[in-house]
Structures are given as C-alpha cells and as structure tokens.
Nucleic acid binder design. Structure first.
Lengths: 213, 213, 213, 213
DNA sequence: TATGAATGAGTATTCATTCAT
DNA sequence: GATGAATGAATACTCATTCAT
C-alpha cells in the first residue's frame, strides 16, 4: 500500500547484504511512518512489517520492543530538531532573525515522519524511564528555544514578557501543523509555514511603522 | 484511582433516584476524562466503569458503543466551543478585541476534559459517517474563527494576509495547551493563556508605538 | 418490525385488562415466532419483548426462563401435533388413507410457528430434565406415527419393511419443510405438501397399475 | 472431552513438522465437528481450540473469523456433495438407478461432520456475500438432483409430476438424518439409509407387480 | 404488573511478543 | 538472519437474568 513511500532493503529480491545498521534504520523509518500516521496504539507492527516486506518477528531482531521503536523514533526526531537548531543561522544579525530562521527549520522537521511522530505522540505512551529520558531532551530543546527568545529580548529585537511561555506558544503553533497536515494536503506547506511565522513575528495587530520581517 | 475526579451518581450507596439523563452525562464526563487522558485506543471502558463504580455493561445501557461515547464527547466539546463563540463579546469595540475575547474563551474550553478530548483525538478514530459529521462541525468553527479574523481585517484592527491560515495558526497555538497542560500542572493557566494571546496579538517583534492590547 | 404478525395484548394503548393466561399465550406466540425464525440461541428476548411492546423483564413474569419459554413452545407444538393426530380421520377406510390424512395435518402444523420451532430446535438446547420430557412426548408421537404405519401394514394397504425407520423418514421429509419454507416463500405450500405426500405414497418408481392415492 | 474424536497435529508433544495445510484441515475438521454438534452460535471457539490442544488465537492463524470457519466448513461439505454427485454411477442403467445411487452417496456425506454441519446450519448465519455464494452452490446441487429426477422421468423409470418439489422432498428426507442421527446412535445407519431410499423409491402403497429396486 | 437499571458470565477478536528452527 | 507458528493478555461487546420500585 504505502510500500512505495519507504524503500525497503529487503525488497523481496535478494540484495540482502546490507549491514545491520542500514536495516535498523529502515525499520525505524517505517515505524516512524506508521506511528506518525496512526499514533502509537493504533499503529500495528504488522503494518510496519508489511511495509518492509518482512515478517513481524524480524523487527524484534532490530528492536527489543514496540516501545523501543517508539523511543528510537522520538529520539531520532528530537535529534533532528537539535541538529537543525544549530543550523546555519550564524549569518543572521539579531535574535529575532535567528529565532525566525530556527522556526523555519523547526517547521521543516515537523514535516518529516520523525518530526510528526515526535510531536504527535505523548510521552505518556512510554514507560517511565524512557519517558523521563525523552522529557529531558525535550526540555533541552525547549531551553534552546527559550534561549533564542531571551537572546532576542536582550538585543531588543524581541518584545515579550515571559520567554518560557512564549517558547511554548511558538512550538505549539508550529506543532499543530503535524496534526492536520496529512489530512489537508491541499494547503501549500511553505506558504503555510511562512504565514504562521509571519503571524508569530508580527502579531495580529497592525503595525504603524511596518518593520516587516 | 482517579475516582475522586468525577463524582458518580452511583456512589455505591444507593441514592439511586437520579434520572437517566444525569447518569448519561456522568458516563460521558467519565469517558471524556479517560479519553482526554489516554487517547481513544488506550482508553479502556473498564477504567471508565471503575471511575463510576459501575460494571462495564452498564455503560452500554447509556451508549451503544465505545465509538458512540467518543462521538458524544467530541460533539459535546464542539458544542462548548460553539456556545462560547457566541459569548458576551458584543461590548467589544473592534474585530481584534472580539477575536481576543473569543480566543480567551476558546482557551478556557480547552482546559476541560471535553475540550481536551475534542482537540487531542483525531477524527480518524471515528467511523466515516461520524467522522464526517464531526468534520462538518469543526469546519464551521474554523469558519467562525476565520470570520472573526476577516472582520478584524475589514475594520483595520487586524493585519494579516491569509485569514484561513491565520485561523489555523491561532487554533493550533491554543490547542497545544491541551497536550502539555496535564503534564505540566505547575504553569499557571490564566497567565499562560494571556501570554499566548499577547504573543499572537502583538507578535515577537517590538512595536515602536506600543498600542498594547 | 414484525410487530404486525403477532397481536399484542399490551398494544401500547391501555386495554391492559386481559387475564394473565391470555398474555402468557401472547408471550408464547411471540417467542415461538422468534425461535422459529432464528433458532434458540440466535433468538434474543429483546426481540420477543419488542414484538410485544413490552420490556424484557416483563417476560419473566410469565416465564421463569428463556428455556422455560422454549420448553413451553415445544410442548405446545407437540400438543398441536398430537391433537391433530387424533383428528377426523375416522371416516378413512384403510391404514394408508388414515396415514395420508395424518401426514397432511402434520404438514399443516409444521407451517405454524409452534410447529416450526418444535421441529427446528434440537432437544439438546434444553436442560436434561426438560429435554427428557420433550423426548418422551416426541417418542409418543413417533410411536403414533409408527402405529399408523403398522396398521397399514396389517390391513395390507402399506408395504414397507421397517415401520420405525419409515416413520422417521416420513417425519423427516415433512419436517424439512420447516427449514426452507420461510426462505422460499414462492413455492405454494399446499401443492408442495401434496407433492411430498404423493411421492411418499407412490414412490419414485412408476406403477404399472396406477392405484393412485 | 471429545478430544479423542479429532486427532490433533499438535498433540502437546512436539511433532511440529506438519505443514500448514494439514493443520488448517485439522482446525476445519474440529470446527465442523463442533458446529455439527452445537450449531453455529452455541459453538465456541474455545471448544474448538480445546479439541486441538491449542489456544484460541492459534485458530486465527488459520482462519480470519469464526464465520470464515463456518463458511469453509459448509463449502467443504458442499464440495463433498458435489464430488459424490459425479460418482461412479455410470454403470447404472436407467435414471432411477442413477438417482438411487446418488441418494446413497448423498446420505453417506450427511453422516460426516461436514455434511451434518452443511445441512444443519442455516445460510442466514453467514454474512450476505458468503451466504450468497453458499446459496449459489446449494442451488447447483439442487439442480443436479432435479436433473437426475428429470432424467428418470424422461426414460420412464421415474414417475412424478414436479421434479423440483420431488428433489426437495428427497433431500429433505435424507437431510433429516443429520438431525437425529447423533442423538440416536443405536439405529444402524446403513439399514436406515436403505430403508429411507426404499421408501422413496417404492412408496408406502403396495405394488401389485413388484418391480423392486 | 411492569419497568428501569444494573450485572455476571461468556465470547470473539486483536496484537505484541516468544521460540524453535 | 529471518520466519512460521503459537500464545497470553487485554478488550469490546452481548445477553439472560435479577431486583427495587
């Protein structure tokens, strides 16, 4: 069905020489896809296996658990967010510009299966230890975002009162893309993200002296 | 466990005089709570029943299905959004003020179990006919929100380019509250909502002539 | 739905003065209908109640059990068979004629809900004591039928070797009507029964000197 | 309990080498047994599993559904009827002889679990699509039987007026064996079938010139 | 008498997970 | 490395039955 979306290293025909790591990644990608689409509980390992042209037990060769898969997916997604965070924003002049650039990259990550599944799936689906780890990473990301806001406050390019809540609001607004995106494939993504960010940067209220973006 | 959260008309001791409607509402409230907490699939009717001090089949006396419960929850949640929409915003002068007032009430609804479960649970959990009904109502709400934005545009109190995407962004930002709210009970709700709305109204970028809210 | 088939003494409107016996009969008739249509296990008391415009617990005022209803139905059905057995066949001259007349009446009973449910439903659905009672009555009926065959043998009007098995075959052939009758409502009943009996009397093989019926 | 009736390829001790097809057949045989004994609704998959020394979910490895099991049972039963139909009756001289031979084989099939469950269980237990398929096959079998009767009419070896109803009566008489057979294990089967067929061929009425079978 | 309300027992079904091969 | 086969645990749902009113 969606078999085309993910390319499987098993391929039914025997190119079966790939290294374990590669296959593990393929499993992860397939899992991310299914998790992103259905959420954790509605996602079935049968479907993951089917996408990969593999049988279910095979998945257990690469992951201990369904939960381990979810954990790896989220971890990977968070990694994407973090690596994007430290992206090529050096050239940007001030805090607001750096934040804006970051938000764009953040939105791009959300478009991916890993991003969507990271954003959509609640930590509470995981066991306490895993959940704790994830929350730790998430709060680091939060902190980074908050820091960007604070930086902007410091250099006067951003004017808000509470950086923490602002960070939540920013993330929340962008995260929401993960939820309706796949149902509403008509809306052009790029334009949407730009509009989102424009709103967040400029606000609803009209500006007398347009210092637009 | 969470037995305290919901007050049950059964109460083990037989004050069994309540009308069916009341009990049905209690079932609904319990279901909304469990759905909001766990999502649809992870929610078990056993837990709903336990909260109410009732056995599972009793639930079927009031609802045909698990799905029927979810449908009623979402319908009820949407009803709350809609009735709030037509709230006391008459006094507000311009479009932006009316929109702001609306967003505040919207955020209040999200705080409730019904609101949270309406926002958190994807339509795709429902059967096609039910899903269609829900989507219809949701798009009406969307339209109302969009209309508020457009009104503001018309009277010059709101400056955005695309009212539709703006509406999505506004809703998305507020909806995100439903996802972390219960995990992070430290943050003060009112302040959070105010900050959210302040951000959305004024944007990140500082305003030269502060015409604050 | 099938509410029209059975006339209910409750009638929603209050002619509620009938005697218990009458109502009990109505319950029985409704039960027989549902049993005949669906078999014992697929038959639900909800449907019986619905037909009667009554609630389920009411049925328990007239019968102890679902099983008691079935027992009564079968008992009643068997009673019909037996009373028909002793019908106006006195005028018939010989054993074959009396048997033929009996088979016709037997077939008529099978057409009724009681007959159908008596024939369709296996004794093994009942508890041992009830089942035993029913089997006793059934074997009496068998014996009567067998006797009719034997009588015919005695007066030379019937030529078979084993009256018992013959009786089973006769009953079996007619009973089969109960199974396809309601699905195939096109076939004319009378003609069918006549044809059945003609076959049983004359056999497949052509007769040189047609001493028809 | 009835564990002895069906031999299970699982056998608790692991001779686990059998092919899937074999096991699937074993499941089917067990299901047929339980269906034949209890009817569809009273039959529980627990019992099927118990007979096979297997857990219930295992059954789902071989069949999608309880209904799928029933469908396969009936289909298999019908297949038996059809393959018997085209049995070694070539040597038979005339239509009546061919029909008689067919009826004997038909009766033999009815003795089996598949035959009994095919005959005992109403199509209406199946979903519409399945039911339709079954009805189609059944009517083919009916047609074959009818054709045999008609052939006999044509060559003068059978004298009846309506071949269709005659076919129904013949099948009905034999089918009835499926209903009392297991309750009355004393009666000798072969003799019973012979007697049935003798009755159907020669009729009750004595023949002046005995052209017996 | 009749009913609303509730329940216990049973049943089909799903799915993550294991294990021998 | 991969799979066929099997399972345990959970879960939604049905239905006959009871009981207070």
């Amino acid at each position: 069905m969606r078999g085309g979306v993910i390319s499987s290293p098993w391929k039914k025909s025997p190119e079966r020489k790939q290294e374990r790591a590669l296959k593990r990644e393929a499993v992860l990608a397939a899992a991310a896809h299914v998790f992103a689409e259905n959420g954790y509980h509605r996602a079935s390992l049968d479907e993951v296996a089917r996408i990969l042209n593999v049988t279910k037990p095979t998945l257990y060769y690469y992951f201990k658990n369904k939960e381990a898969m979810l954990f790896a997916c989220i971890e990977h997604g968070l990694e994407m967010f973090r690596s994007e965070a430290s992206g090529p924003s050096a050239k940007a002049k001030n805090g607001l510009q750096r934040l804006t650039a970051y938000l764009k990259r953040y939105a791009a990550v959300i478009e991916s299966d890993f991003g969507r599944c990271t954003v959509r799936i609640s930590d509470s689906e995981l066991s306490e230890p895993s959940s704790r780890k994830i929350r730790r990473i998430k709060s680091e990301i939060d902190r980074e975002l908050r820091q960007l806001v604070a930086d902007g406050q410091a250099d006067g390019s951003i004017a808000v009162t509470d950086p923490q809540i602002t960070a939540l609001a920013l993330a929340g607004a962008l995260n929401s893309i993960a939820f309706w995106r796949h149902q509403d494939p008509d809306l052009p993504v790029d334009k949407t993200v730009d509009e989102y960010i424009h709103l967040l940067v400029n606000g609803l209220a009209p500006r007398t002296s347009q210092a637009r973006k």
